[in-house]
Design a protein around this nucleic acid. Structure first.
Lengths: 350, 350
DNA sequence: ACTTAGCACTCAAAGAGTGAGAGTGCTAAA
DNA sequence: TTTAGCACTCTCACTCTTTGAGTGCTAAGT
């Protein structure tokens, strides 16, 4: 594989990304860093087509990159510029600081990405799933009416109203709360399972049958937590993309949660996937640029951009990269005091 | 304004709603309830066009209704059938009963509307705003970290984490909770104001300055409550509507909260608004069919359908109508035991 | 052995012309 | 006042032609 051919391939991708039109040999020959005639380029382009990196929409048109062409460009050819410092601090401002709630942090990142890239942005947050139950409270709020409060080590709080068939006495409530704390405090959200709750229902019913709705309530709350949250922002940007099929976009927006599975896979660094490569994300000619952020070293979610395959990778990747790093930083470290006692404790509270 | 012309206008709207194609004089003349020739109809249609009720996409096409045409049709011309009893009981089943939480009630209504109309449904619930604070709890959950729990008489529950500069002693917490209960229990959410909280911050700070973040937290939660909740369900149905601009739809879905303002306006009965008439709901060629439900006689939220302007009003309106009435009924009256003590109390708890 | 100029060739996109069909407006008769 | 009839208009779908960009190939140049 020729040095010059690679240069030409890169040039074709750059030009195509810039203009959106198939690029001909003449355009390439006029670029500063290319010093051969259009005829030579034609020969090389024909070779690149042979090798599967370029293709022609029709005989008398210029060339556009194929999947393989983009892949090669992304993996080997393109050079990523560093984000200028003022841009970094602008992003810092948009994101928030260590006190910003995690959810908001990723929402802000998504909004920033949408605005910068003019594409759709997608973020997931699986932090709640990897956290640990740090507190369960049952609070009476009315006749036979109770509110369950579930708090996890990462600061997620969920509540739910629950109606019982009888009112609980002070002792019964105490017994229940104590039992739950014994069994759930310090347990990771991911470990929670239907069976666990079934067993608890059985155990608790032995003491007093009408307590079981409370256990069910807690079970439902824990399901809420386990579910990874996925947010798509700027979906409308995809609709204004010429090269994307509107129907497919619409279908994707409707079923955006399909992406969850794909984004749950572990990987490191920036990943670029093409729409036609997977079916959890089936928009032809689209591409997904995604990266994982971490909280205290553990994968905590992902953050990415969805756009046409013809996007400015050189521009977007540094942004995605910086934002994931920044989020990882903001979520980690001195967050200790949020995690607080709860994370370290494994037994019941005193 | 001719009797026959009105009949023809109604027929044109009906046909257009049915087929989606501009309707010509011939089609109308073949309808059962029209007994004049196509030429006569042509004359009348020309007159209706003159008057601004019909328009032609182009000279040699049939007519379609204008905004004014729809308006006249909706306000005067169409005849609404009654919902058959079995349909009513089907809806009753979907909705729930007096024990169903209010939120779920309106969610169910929205889901039912989506399914029946194949359009998007929108519901708002401003009930929390008109409710009364029934409980405020402050729960320590970690080092200098507290969760505030705010519960209202209508069963809304809000929570918020709050970080203080120092840990509170048991007495301090007790003092604070007591103070808050004294001042907020039984107060209507609507009455809560910035100034009230400012006064409370001042009062509480006198005792211990670092308590003020808690008051601020409660203040923020009460703002949440004051804000009416708006849910859009079945937004994707709009995307498969030929006559709606996909861009506008997606933009609307992403900014659905703009609708809140509009739905806060007081009105009674069914209202139909067209997308181009307002900018808090700017989907061209769309229409919003909406009605208010009441709780104990007071407006408590709204419930509606968003679809193309060419929507079967005759069919949809009875549904919206019935559902609002049913919700009003379910929310009112014997709800006493949910509202429980709190609603009747005006002073602090004992 | 590469590179380049030149030229014939191909093909999509844009424009122009055509006929069919739907629906109208108008006129004159009932 | 209504109706039948007819000429007219305009869109849609189709075809044909032109235009121009870009190619592949060949033969000459380095």
């Amino acid at each position: 594989m020729d040095e010059r051919k690679l240069k030409i391939l890169a040039a074709v991708v750059d030009e195509y990304v810039r203009t959106g039109e198939p690029v001909g040999s003449k355009v390439i020959s006029k670029l500063d860093n290319i010093k051969v005639s259009s005829a030579t380029i034609r020969n090389d382009m024909a070779a690149l087509e042979q090798m599967g990196y370029l293709e022609q929409p029709h005989t008398s048109a210029g060339r556009i990159p194929t999947f393989a062409g983009y892949r090669l460009y992304i993996d080997e050819l393109m050079t990523l510029p560093d984000l200028p410092d003022e841009e970094k601090s602008r992003l810092d401002g948009l994101l928030g600081d260590k006190d910003t709630p995690e959810e908001l942090l990723v929402q802000n990142a998504a909004a920033a990405l949408t605005e910068i890239t003019q594409c759709a942005a997608v973020v997931t947050n699986s932090a709640p799933r990897f956290s640990v139950i740090s507190k369960v409270e049952v609070i009476p709020t009315g006749k036979r009416l109770y509110v369950i409060l579930l708090i996890t080590s990462n600061g997620s709080i969920k509540n739910k109203a629950c109606r019982l068939e009888f009112d609980l006495s002070h002792e019964q409530l105490e017994f229940f709360t104590h039992y739950i704390e014994e069994n759930l405090n310090g347990v990771s959200v991911e470990q929670l399972s239907e069976e666990m709750f079934d067993k608890m229902v059985a155990a608790v019913s032995a003491y007093m049958v009408s307590l079981s709705p409370l256990v069910k309530g807690i079970c439902e709350l824990s399901e809420d937590l386990r579910q990874q949250e996925l947010t798509l922002s700027g979906g409308e940007k995809l609709l204004s993309c010429e090269e994307l099929d509107k129907m497919e976009v619409v279908r994707f927006i409707e079923h955006k949660n399909q992406l969850s599975d794909m984004l749950e896979d572990t990987f490191s660094g920036i990943q670029v996937k093409f729409g036609s490569e997977s079916d959890s994300f089936a928009i032809g000619n689209s591409s997904l640029i995604v990266s994982k952020y971490r909280k205290d070293g553990k994968e905590a979610g992902s953050l990415g951009v969805i756009g046409p395959m013809r996007v400015d990778y050189k521009k977007i990747i540094p942004y995605v990269d910086y934002l994931t790093q920044k989020i990882s930083y903001l979520m980690s470290g001195s967050d200790d005091d949020i995690v607080s006692g709860a994370a370290d404790e494994t037994g019941p509270k005193t």
